[in-house]
Simulated scan of single mutants.
Amino acid sequence: MKYMLLVCGDDTADASGMAPVEPWVEEHGVRRGDRLYGHRLRLPDRAVTVRVRDGEVLRTDGPFAETKEYVAGFDVVDCDSLEAAVRIAAAHPVATIGAMEVRPFWDEGLTEDAETAVRRLDAELTEAARARDVDRLTACYAPDVETFGATGREVRSGIGALRKAAEAWFATLTGPVDREVLELRVRPGEGSTFSHALVRIRGTRVSGEPLDRVVRVTTGYRDTGFSWLIAHEHVSVPLEGERS
């Protein structure tokens, strides 16, 4: 299970005798593999606190609360139990002068793993194409998605541009659109994931001509914390006779 370790510094503590953090990172990140990633944070005087009240965005320079203790960084660990996460936190040098808050991630049983999410989104794209449902299709994408068309001449930024392109494309076709995935390879990652696919698109143009094209699709997905969404999509046409 994954745990977030919030590294809490104390601006009144004397850190001169604190052991360096690098050996802890080496031990738990490289040797043991418990630490997945982490980073230091700037001091609280660089923070910005954001609130929204009655539709108005209220921005305050500085931390959420005035306190001598502050979050100085974070680490994400993956271990078997809370007790194991506590032992890892206790070995962190900052624990000797500040504090380490250990908090489990939201129950992973309620969320999809990366590969399951990718395959679900891909199936949703197939059903959306068959139904020519633009709303259903765009729901699979992040608001700031960037997409690259098969011609390579156009880069579309944002969900609005994607929606307009999808509507224009569906307008050139009549009847259902058949989207057949010939090959799908998923490269799971932490927080982001990529897939590579060969997709066959078949349909009928409004002129009556048949459409039958195989395209290569490279897709980047982002874990929003609640679901996975497509953040990047690049469609290209394979060379003649190429299938992989």
Rank of each mutant, 00 (worst) to 15 (best):
A95P: 09
G98L: 08
V76Y: 01
E66T: 13
D107T: 14
C79R: 00
E83G: 10
C79S: 02
I88K: 02
E127R: 03
L125T: 08
A65H: 09
R132K: 08
A85N: 05
I88W: 04
R103F: 10
W106E: 13
V94C: 02
E66Q: 15
D75F: 00
A114H: 03
A99P: 03
R120A: 14
K68P: 08
D113A: 07
V76K: 01
A117F: 13
R119G: 10
F105R: 07
G109K: 12
E83Y: 03
E101M: 12
E101T: 15
V102N: 03
A85H: 01
A90H: 15
E108K: 12
E66N: 08
V86Q: 11
L125P: 03
C79A: 04
L125G: 04
P104Y: 11
V76N: 00
E101A: 15
A72F: 01
A72R: 09
R130F: 11
A129Y: 07
T96R: 15
E101G: 10
T96Y: 06
V77R: 00
A84K: 06
E108P: 11
A129K: 01
A129C: 15
S81G: 05
I88H: 04
A91M: 06
R87Q: 14
M100S: 05
V118P: 05
E108H: 13
D122H: 13
A117I: 13
W106F: 15
D78F: 04
A95V: 06
L121M: 11
K68C: 04
W106H: 13
P104W: 07
M100E: 11
V102R: 01
A84F: 00
I88G: 08
A131N: 08
L125I: 06
L121H: 08
A91D: 15
K68E: 15
T96Q: 10
F105V: 08
V77Y: 01
R119D: 12
E124F: 07
A89S: 10
G109I: 10
G73M: 12
D113Q: 08
L82H: 09
R132V: 07
L110W: 14
E101I: 14
E115K: 12
L82N: 00
A89T: 02
S81Y: 07
L125K: 04
D78R: 11
Y70G: 02
V102K: 02
A65N: 02
T126H: 05
A99C: 14
A131W: 02
G73N: 03
S81K: 07
E115V: 04
R120E: 09
E69V: 12
M100G: 04
E124N: 08
V118N: 05
H92F: 09
A114T: 11
A84Q: 06
R87L: 08
G109T: 11
R103L: 05
R130I: 12
K68A: 04
V77F: 03
D122W: 05
F74T: 00
A65G: 10
T126D: 13
V94K: 00
L121R: 05
V118Q: 01
E115Y: 12
V118C: 04
A89W: 03
A84C: 00
V86D: 06
Y70R: 00
T96P: 05
A72M: 03
D133S: 06
